[in-house]
C-alpha cells in the first residue's frame, strides 16, 4: 500500500512485458522465413506493443490496420461458418501482409516482399504464436 496525501491507493503489481523474449521470437521468425521484411506485435485494439520495422513503416498505422482487418476476418469466419481463424493475408503485387491472432488480446503482423515463402511462414508462425501468447500472458 502506498499512502498519498492522506488517501490510500493500491499499487497494481504489473510485471513489465518481457520485450527481450518477444523480440527474440520476432528475430527468429525473420531469420527463418525468406522474404519476411518487418514484424509487429500489437494489442487487438490497434496499440503497438513491439515492432521490428524499416524506417518507412509506421508501426501505429500497421497495428491499426491489422487490428481492424483481424476483427473483420474473425467476424467473417464466425458468420460464414469457416471454423477457427488461422491467418489473414493481403496479397499485393509487391508483397504481403499476414496477420495472426495471439489469443484474444493481441496479434502479430508479418510484412513480406513478393518472394515471401508463405507456406513456410504459416508453418513457422504456429509455434511462434504459441510462445508469444505465453510470454504476453506471463
Amino acid at each position: 500500500m502506498l499512502v498519498l496525501s492522506g488517501s490510500t491507493f493500491p499499487i497494481q503489481e504489473w510485471s513489465e512485458l518481457n520485450y527481450d523474449a518477444l523480440g527474440a521470437e520476432l528475430k527468429k521468425l525473420r531469420e527463418n522465413v525468406a522474404g519476411v521484411t518487418d514484424t509487429v506485435i500489437a494489442a487487438t485494439d490497434g496499440i503497438p506493443i513491439l515492432a521490428d520495422v524499416a524506417k518507412n513503416v509506421d508501426p501505429a498505422h500497421i497495428s491499426a490496420l491489422a487490428a481492424s482487418g483481424l476483427g473483420i476476418a474473425r467476424q467473417t469466419t464466425e458468420v460464414v461458418g469457416l471454423g477457427t481463424l488461422g491467418q489473414t493475408v493481403v496479397f499485393g503485387s509487391e508483397g504481403y501482409m499476414a496477420v495472426y491472432a495471439i489469443g484474444r488480446l493481441s496479434l502479430m503482423v508479418v510484412l513480406g516482399d513478393k518472394g515471401l515463402n508463405l507456406g513456410r511462414l504459416l508453418h513457422e508462425s504456429r509455434p511462434v504464436i504459441e510462445r508469444l501468447g505465453a510470454i504476453l500472458a506471463a
Binding site: S7, T8, F9, P10, Q12, W14, S15, E16, L17, Y19, G23, L26, K27, R30, A43, I47, P48, I49, L50, A51, D52, V53, P59, L105, S106, L136
Partner: peptide
C-alpha cells in the same frame, strides 16, 4: 539488422478496479 522499438506498454491485462479507502 533487427531494430526493436516499444512504447512501454506494461501489460495487456485490463486494470483492476481501483480501491479507494
Amino acid at each position: 539488422s533487427f531494430s526493436f522499438s516499444h512504447w512501454g506498454l506494461t501489460s495487456l491485462h485490463p486494470r483492476a478496479p481501483r480501491e479507494v479507502e
